[in-house]
Design a protein around this nucleic acid. Structure first.
Lengths: 240, 240
DNA sequence: CGCCGGTTTGATACTAATCAAGTTAAGTGG
DNA sequence: CCACTTAACTTGATTAGTATCAAACCGGCG
């Protein structure tokens, strides 16, 4: 179950992304310790509740953020309000559109999240000095491109049942960034409405397909948001 | 109408991408003339007919290619054969997945194309030496990411009629790389089957929606492949 | 306790897929 | 040059899958 915490801003000293440094992941892994120290003067850790808007489509970008914990959803909307989730970002992704004055998507915290905020200018200066950093950012962009294309197959060619299975499989394999392993029990970071917007379906269809997977013992729905997958290979088979 | 030429390989001296150099676009624009000269020793121009496989999913990448003329389609397939076109590349895009041992998509010439082939190692060496080149490649990756996300909205949330209109609008605005303008009359670089795979529809539905647009005088279908759009703004309105 | 948002379940409608003929245009060989 | 073949496309009839509309359910909170 998703517990909603009180909003805590600026909750600690401006220490730099300990997580990513420790795990040598995220953008910080590409920097020298001297650069890390200098960067740490500009960064600050913030915590956000689920459902906060972090970046708006077509708005100027003020800052980048390293995702330390939780899930960010990236969305696009048509004029008449139809919405599509076009990406999910997990730790230790970097949030923010490099080298663009404004964002092409809106970003919202899907779960409670911890972020390491980096002012736009600070990161961009650092990129100019550090080719390995730019390289790392490019690798993330290429990975996101691969993921987007994978998801296009799901959106364009899979049935509702396969779409829901694919979503659950995606979450099982991404929600727990620590171990490279897939989790067999986890909280869904998205509401049924968000899942529907991710899959190009309605909430009712998502709900029905989840119920069907439950009836077929592929998943157990513990508590709306909390799901257990006894056999991940079985779920994988349902993905098409 | 699509004319199929005889296959002409290695049809000329290895001159480097005159097109992209002249227009200061594509990857070559980021290089010094000295670097261009050196690179030109490794590149060669080739022409391919429509329908040739240029790169296979999960196969090692032998070379990159600058698209000089024509359209490349990038596709992915599910085990059971369902296919999705996940991207189109127009001149002066760079074809090939940077920094990956193997491709995640297969690439096929959709129309007749001219390419400037660059061996993998030659380009990658050059990238190591040239930060501006790497930067330019990253910008292309980011643009492709934006395009993929735009298309996810089309796949997930638009009706068949809106999908077909969106496809025609995309072609009208991309097919003629010279002028920044959109073309009002053009050859479709894809067959109905490919359009269907791009839009997540069947051939029959694509055909019906094209006929409907014709009946409503939004487009004129001159010759299956050749289409005229009298009023692009009208077409834009049908895109959702 | 009763409200409220999020979710599930049910009945019906509608869009696009499937199955099946036809049509067109280009190529082939007598 | 013309009948024949073939591939790509269009059109029609029917069906299947998902959306829509509507109602009930559940869990948390005031």
């Amino acid at each position: 179950m998703q517990t909603v915490r009180k909003d805590i801003h600026n909750s600690d000293l401006p220490i730099l992304c300990q997580n990513c440094e420790a795990r040598h992941q995220g953008v910080c892994g590409a920097l020298t310790s001297e650069q890390l120290l200098r960067l740490s003067k500009h960064t600050r850790r913030v915590r956000r509740d689920a459902g906060q808007e972090l970046m708006a489509d077509a708005m100027p970008i003020a800052a980048y953020a390293n995702v330390l914990r939780g899930v960010i959803k990236l969305t696009k909307v048509l004029e008449d309000g139809r919405q599509q989730v076009v990406g999910l970002q997990f730790a230790p992704d970097l949030l923010g559109r490099p080298f663009a004055g404004e964002s092409r998507v809106s970003a919202e915290s899907a779960s409670d999240v911890d972020l390491c905020m980096i002012p736009k200018s600070a990161l961009e200066n650092l990129i100019k000095q550090s080719a390995p950093l730019e390289h790392r950012i490019m690798l993330q962009a290429l990975r996101e491109l691969d993921e987007a294309r994978d998801w296009m197959v799901t959106l364009g060619r899979k049935t509702a049942a396969e779409k829901v299975a694919s979503f659950l499989y995606l979450i099982a394999t991404h929600i727990n960034p620590e171990e490279g392993e897939a989790s067999t029990t986890f909280d869904l970071p998205l509401s049924r409405a968000d899942i529907a917007d991710f899959l190009g379906l309605t909430i009712e269809t998502v709900s029905r397909q989840m119920s069907k997977l439950k009836a077929e013992k592929i998943i157990e729905i513990v508590n709306y948001r909390h799901v257990t997958v006894p056999d991940l290979a079985q779920l994988r088979l349902r993905c098409g």
